[in-house]
């Protein structure tokens, strides 16, 4: 009896699996999610450029000296999601900040250079981000995540591919 029931349960599970799995991103969607390259040269200091990777919006921000300083001079203990600025940019490129462009609350697009910290401000539910993309107020639970990316050269990054811990050593 139990064995029969167990076999039946396996059968039901096996039958359900294709139905559930078919809802996941299909092969073409996955393939289209390959890494994209972004040329940094045309991005002037203070400018934010929007790019798409996997249908998701990504901000590439060329930060000014002031903005970098503001991002670094922060008491980490006061942050809702403590993370030093250095962990959010690649070594040797403190001016380039790459973060996902959707608010970590419910996915709206925050407005750049806005809010009390002149980072981003989300108009939907009032989340505030600083110049490092870290949440500083509002309902967003975590910082704007940094997507996997790597510096191909000093003026070009590839989004969707993680570099090694020491950027200098990578792609030597």
């Amino acid at each position: 009896m139990i064995a029969t029931g167990a076999v039946g349960a396996v059968g039901v599970g096996a039958l359900a699996w294709p139905f559930v799995a078919s809802l996941a991103p299909d092969a073409q969607t996955v393939a289209a999610g390959a890494p994209v390259e972004v040329d940094l040269a045309p991005i002037s200091p203070g400018q934010i450029v929007k790019v798409f990777w996997r249908g998701k919006l990504i901000f590439v921000r060329n930060r000014t000296e002031e903005e970098i300083k503001a991002a670094q001079d922060v008491n980490l203990a006061s942050l809702p999601d403590p993370q030093p600025d250095s962990a959010r940019v690649k070594e040797g490129h403190p001016n380039i900040l790459v973060v996902y462009g959707n608010c970590t609350h419910l996915g709206c697009v925050p407005l750049g250079n806005e809010g009390p910290f002149h980072g981003w401000f989300c108009p939907c539910h009032g989340s505030v981000f600083d110049t490092s993309g870290r949440v500083r107020g509002g309902p967003a639970p975590i910082n704007l995540p940094v997507p996997p990316y790597t510096f191909v050269s000093d003026t070009k990054i590839r989004i969707g591919e993680e570099s090694n811990a020491a950027p200098k050593a990578a792609h030597a």
């Binding site: 400018q47 934010i48 450029v49 929007k50 407005l111 750049g112 250079n113 806005e114 401000f121």
Partner: peptide, 15 residues
Amino acid sequence: NTRHALLAAALAVGT
């Protein structure tokens, strides 16, 4: 003022 700055910033990034 923030509203003005907001729109100005939006203009800068082309939104």
